[in-house]
């Protein structure tokens, strides 16, 4: 699906300006691009940066019906909304907007249940690779070597592949997208909305505050993650994986931009030794190899 930027302007702002988000916030770009693609969205937000950037009660930045709920309750609450709206005969697009902590870690059980029931929900995970709203602690999404406040010497384990866990649920649609390519987020969101059942879209969302990067390069970091092979872009439709247009050429490691160009722009990787970088590269290639088996 080819999307023009002017197509994305059709809707009124879903995220109203003047909110609590940090300057250069990747999550905000992801939210605007994803939610503006949807008809009558209801958004469920667990504990995460998205629950903080909405500003203080009684004023909120979100211009769509929103339910804030506890950390590990996003998919259950969304299931309840979906079923209730079905009983009321009302057409809504029910959405989970969760961070990586809520998706990879504490909320895994609740979404696994909802995915197994194939509830009619789009689950977006904006992934900045750590607990951002509590001030940059390690999560299951943190890559090996990255410094967080709870891994001050760099994380010693590899990053979890939540999309492949999701794929094991055999849901009808899984996609990855990046703040580096907002039109692709919009297109994938629109596509997911047309599919019945549980949909999952993982969005790489740079966080200048937690990554210790320049706020102006948030979009560039998203693109570099794709070009270096750090964050593969693909869709899994009914079990079949297809690499997305922007990312397919990076299946071939020789086409990739050196990973150092990505790492050097972020303070969180400043302690990386050559050995750490080699290990990280192995992790990334392992993920590509596993994904290739789903093609």
């Amino acid at each position: 699906m080819s999307i023009k930027i002017t197509d994305m302007m059709d809707r009124p702002d879903v995220l109203l300006r003047g909110n609590f988000a940090c300057a250069g916030c990747g999550l905000s770009v992801a939210y605007r691009s994803a939610i503006s693609a949807l008809d009558k969205p209801i958004v469920v937000i667990p504990a995460c940066c998205a629950s903080v950037i909405q500003s203080l009660h009684p004023n909120v930045t979100y211009n769509v019906p929103t339910l804030n709920i506890a950390f590990a309750a996003h998919a259950s609450a969304a299931s309840g909304i979906t079923r209730a709206k079905k009983m009321r005969g009302e057409d809504y697009t029910v959405v989970i907007w969760s961070g990586d902590g809520g998706t990879y870690d504490i909320g895994l059980s609740t979404w696994s249940g909802a995915a197994e029931r194939n509830e009619n929900i789009i689950h977006f995970c904006y992934d900045n690779g750590f607990y951002s709203n509590t001030g940059a602690q390690r999560s299951g999404a943190t890559p090996r070597g990255a410094v967080t406040t709870t891994t001050p010497a760099g994380k010693s384990e590899k990053r979890k592949s939540v999309a492949r866990i999701m794929a094991a649920h055999d849901i009808p649609y899984i996609a990855t997208a990046s703040v580096g390519y907002p039109r692709d987020i919009y297109a994938k969101s629109k596509k997911a909305a047309k599919i019945e059942g549980y949909k999952f879209i993982l969005i790489d969302a740079p966080c200048p505050t937690g990554w210790n990067s320049d706020p102006a390069i948030t979009q560039e970091l998203g693109q570099l993650a794709v070009k270096t092979g750090y964050f593969p872009l693909y869709e899994i439709v009914n079990g079949k994986l297809v690499f997305s247009k922007q990312g397919s050429k990076y299946c071939d490691p020789t086409n990739r931009v050196p990973i150092e160009e990505y790492l050097d722009k972020q303070g969180r990787f400043s302690q990386m030794t050559p050995k750490n970088i080699e290990d990280l590269k192995k992790d990334l290639q392992f993920e590509w190899d596993m994904l290739a088996k789903l093609e």
């Binding site: 339910l67 590990a72 259950s76 309840g80 909304i81 079923r83 709206k85 009983m87 029931r117």
Partner: peptide, 26 residues
């Protein structure tokens, strides 16, 4: 009625909260 076979009590209450706010007796 929509009957949701959730995977835990935590999710039972989560679904009940969502459903109630979506406008039905729960």
């Amino acid at each position: 009625c929509e009957y949701i076979n959730v995977e835990s009590e935590h999710s039972a209450m989560g679904a009940a909260i969502g459903a109630s706010l979506a406008g039905v007796r729960t």
